[in-house]
Design a protein around this nucleic acid. Structure first.
Length: 828
RNA sequence: GCCGAAGUGGCGAAAUGGCAGACGCGCUACGUUCAGGUCGUAGUGCUCGCAAGUGCGUGUGGGUUCAAAUCCCACCUUCGGCACCA
């Protein structure tokens, strides 16, 4: 704040307050479903109810609001709603720390945030606000859950989770610090727990298809990598000699061409077969290894990166292609959750297997020979293509062909099949928390897992929850909540105490905005048909794979359930960058958090809005600077002065009856106006707010010069210019534009006007600067009529004295003419 | 390690094959003022030159082109994402 020096010449606070009051009183931004104009649904990611709207929220919301306003003024019926992401852990932590109920904490925060959001001067229709911690909203989370459950898209399964034995709870990865519980420092280990999942993997292949959406390439690539499709072969190894129930062990490989190079098989420590495969004399060792692997946290696994530990089970399986016995080992570099949880070890052609083999003295056999290969020790695995060797009947084939032929052979023999694996895992939605949507499931000793009947929804969060610092979910010891009756047999039963991940809320909130008060379902199908899908979504790139993928999954699943008739939620996506302060991300601990409120008090929301849009390209983010804000405040002062009707009145008049009334100045003024309209319009369309505002600055500089022309001003023309200028300014600076609109005698409201149109003919320059180059170097600049022909341009270029001096002792070899731009004289 | 984005004055940046530095900040000088701020006018990439003007200049090195910040190849740096995915 210390660097700020500019004071406004107008009272921004009063003016902005006045107009916000009037807009709200008149319901100027009320969105009607029956409006006949074409619809435009522009959505900004809703904020988490942390308590304060900081400058980062402004950076996300002010430009998107300007864009939505711009679309309104282009004649669209625009839906640009706002709501609150109101469930989540911080509310619960506040409850434990300060004894405030999460509901109270959240609703207080929302009240403050609403006030702050209003101060931005946005077009939000507050009648459409949604708050997803209210039963009217989360009831429908439960309803979707039931639909998914019926459709087999929601299921319960055992999954390893970070478990703190002291707190008796599951911890999120973020809550595990150096392998210990952040609250009580007890060592965390991975424990299998029954948890609820959504079967997003069913849609893995569909989610890979991004051909219908206009999103940043970067985000599409990130989703693609996250889904991680790989084609390969599931091949089994024979176990029949062991006398187990299982006759074989299945592995997944993308390199079936290396099957003859298998010298061991590795199984994940958590794999259910481990126990059965462990020979008696290896039991102690294997059990110790499995225990140790479970107690390893993510952090510890990272710290031992590269070290490939593992132990021998004592069992062998048989490689059916060559009949060889292959030892089975347990190692934690194999993940239970990918493929089959078992890997065939080919050390010669896989770097991880290679390191493992070196460490455990396992044989390394080359089966794909690189070009010019000579036998001998390998320094590392050869992962490229080559010629099949040591591969029985497939010897001599290029490995690319070997891949095909061996896969065919394996399928024909019934030893396996070609298949596709995904890195994507099912979405774990269970949270052992209070402040979330209760999962509508009841456990009955007689009937088992019973879904809560639809008519009993919502399953309400109990208000009388008790928040103990143990970390346990308050739901587990709330007898009133847990004890219930089985909906099927009526006997005493237990309610599910897990609540849902908050990403469930945000997976469909875009639908709720269409009909936020609808109570016969999550949304009114007719209204959704009108508004959805979202035409333009904006938000941070940090949600590239979680929220954006989950929302796409939801939409596809709802389409399959017959609830929607489209399968992509967001047609266009734009990711804004991050605003930083003092070269760092803003954080409370750094003490560099910029609070917008004092700036809004001092220079007004319009100046803050415009500054955020002006400081650089929106997708690149940028650094907050008080001095930069000064620049905008100064500009706004000049705009204020320039747009006052009194300013023009005080200037000399040109006589309309004079033949020179419409003079060269006026032609320039008109041309500049049309060029400005064109530039600002195309820039705003493409979210190029920084250059749009720069163009408005140039134009206001131009108009201010016009006011000083000694011959006087063509006042009707100037008034038109101011009118267009205000219309172009309105999306970015809605309050000032409205105030000036009124002062200039135009009817309320500027925000219901149409954007000015430009005329390409009027925007055309009559005189252009023709750049003359010699061998690509600029030697002269000539003012020529825009209509100049190639021949005229070339001869003018050669006549230029500055060019002539370059042409002594040289021969003109070629001349390049770029119409309207330049002549390049090529000499030798 | 893999995937992706970016590198331009003192600073935020503009220009996406054709005048490098629009617009803004900062700075300098002058004017206004008792003074400071504000405001106004002019200047402001580096180099040599009294000057007209000259040469250089968009991370580094190479290439394509009449012409490259922009396209291609290699490298360096910074940021973001993923990270034993068989």
């Amino acid at each position: 704040m210390t660097m700020r020096t500019t004071e406004l010449t107008y009272n921004a606070r009063e003016i902005e307050k006045k107009w916000r009051g009037r807009w709200e009183g008149d319901k100027l931004y009320k969105v009607r479903d029956d409006d006949p104009r074409p619809k435009w649904y522009e959505l900004t990611m809703y904020p988490y109810t942390s308590g304060d709207i900081h400058i980062g929220h402004w950076y996300a919301m002010a430009p998107s609001d300007a864009h939505a306003r711009f679309r309104r003024m282009q004649g669209y019926n625009v839906l640009h709603p706002m709501g609150f992401d109101a469930f989540g852990l911080p509310a619960e932590n506040a409850a434990i720390k300060r004894g405030i109920h999460p509901y109270t904490w959240t609703m207080n925060n929302i009240q403050n945030m609403r006030r702050q959001l209003r101060s931005m001067g946005t077009v939000y229709d507050w009648d459409r606000e949604i708050v997803c911690c209210l039963p009217e909203y989360y009831k429908w989370n439960q309803w979707f859950f039931l639909k998914f459950y019926e459709a087999g898209l929601a299921y319960r399964a055992k999954a390893p989770a970070n478990w703190c034995s002291s707190c008796q709870t599951v911890l999120a990865n973020e809550q595990v610090v150096d392998g210990k519980c952040e609250r009580c420092s007890t060592s965390v280990y991975r424990r299998d727990l029954e948890q609820w999942f959504f079967r997003i993997t069913k849609y893995a292949n569909e989610l890979l298809d991004v051909s219908k959406i206009d999103w940043p390439e970067k985000i599409k690539i990130m989703q693609n990598n996250w889904i991680g499709r790989s084609e390969g072969v599931e091949i089994s190894f024979d176990l029949s000699h062991l006398g187990l129930e299982e006759q074989e062990i299945s592995t997944f490989t993308t390199r079936i061409d290396t099957i003859y190079g298998v010298t061991f098989v590795v199984i994940a420590p958590e794999h259910p077969l481990v126990e059965k495969l462990t020979a008696r004399e290896h039991k102690t060792e294997v059990e110790a290894y499995v225990q140790q692997a479970r107690h390893q946290t993510e952090v510890e696994r990272l710290s031992t990166e590269g070290e490939k530990t593992g132990v021998f089970t004592g069992s062998y399986c048989v490689n059916r292609l060559n009949g060889e016995p292959v030892p089975i080992l347990v190692a934690d570099y194999v993940l239970l959750t990918y493929g089959t949880g078992v890997v065939m070890g080919v050390p010669a052609h896989d770097q991880r297997d290679f390191e493992f083999a070196k460490k455990h003295n396992l044989p390394i056999r080359i089966v794909v020979a690189p070009p010019g290969w000579q036998e001998g020790d390998m320094p590392q695995a050869y992962v490229g293509e080559g010629t099949q060797v040591n591969s029985g009947p497939f010897n001599g084939l290029p490995s690319s062909e070997g891949k095909e032929r061996i896969a065919e052979h394996v399928e024909r023999m019934g030893w396996g099949k070609r298949t596709v694996s995904y890195r994507l895992r099912d979405w774990l939605i269970s949270r052992q928390r209070y402040w979330g949507t209760p999962i509508p499931i009841i456990y009955c000793d007689e009937c088992g897992t019973v879904p809560v009947p639809e008519e009993d929804l919502p399953v309400l969060l109990p208000e009388d929850a008790e928040f103990r610092p143990t970390g346990e979910s308050p739901l587990t010891y709330n007898q009133g909540f847990v004890n219930t009756a089985c909906p099927r047999c009526g006997r005493p039963a237990r309610s599910e105490t897990d609540t849902m991940d908050t990403f469930v809320d945000s997976s469909w909130y875009l639908l709720r905005y269409a009909s936020p008060q609808y109570d016969k379902g999550p949304f009114d199908p007719q209204v959704v048909r009108k508004w959805l899908p979202v035409d333009q979504y904006t938000g941070g790139a940090e949600h590239a794979v979680m929220h954006l993928l989950y929302a796409r999954f939801f939409t596809k699943a709802l389409q399959d359930l017959g609830l929607l008739d489209f399968d992509e939620p967001f047609l266009r996506l734009y990711n804004q960058g991050h605003i930083i302060a003092q070269r760092h991300k803003m954080s409370k601990s750094r003490g560099n958090v910029i609070t917008p409120d004092p700036y809004v008090e001092e220079v007004g929301a319009d100046v803050v809005r415009c500054y955020l849009m002006f400081l650089g390209p929106w997708d690149q983010g940028g650094e907050w600077s008080d001095q930069g804000l000064n620049g905008i405040a100064r500009w706004m002062n000049r705009v204020w002065e320039m747009c006052q009707p009194e300013t023009l009145e005080s200037k000399g008049d040109k006589d309309p009856n004079d033949s020179a009334f419409w003079d060269a100045w006026d032609v320039t003024v008109t041309r500049t106006l049309h060029q400005t309209i064109r530039r600002v319009t195309t820039d705003l369309e493409k979210f190029k707010f920084n250059t749009a505002i720069a163009t408005l600055m140039e134009y206001s500089n131009h108009l201010r010069r016009v006011l000083e022309v000694p011959e006087g001003v063509n006042k009707p023309l100037f008034r038109d210019c101011i009118k267009s200028f205000l219309l172009l300014l309105a999306p970015c600076a809605p309050h000032i534009a409205e105030e000036m609109w009124e002062r200039n005698g135009y009817p309320y409201s500027i925000h219901n006007q149409h954007m000015p149109q430009w005329d390409d003919a009027l925007a055309m320059d009559e005189v252009i600067t023709l750049v003359v180059q010699v061998n690509g170097k600029v030697r002269d600049r000539l003012q020529v009529p825009a209509s100049i022909t190639a021949e005229e341009a070339k001869s003018l270029a050669l006549e230029s004295p500055r060019v002539k001096t370059q042409l002594t002792n040289a021969k003109v070899a070629n001349m390049v003419y770029v119409p309207g731009r330049l002549v390049n004289v090529v000499v030798k």
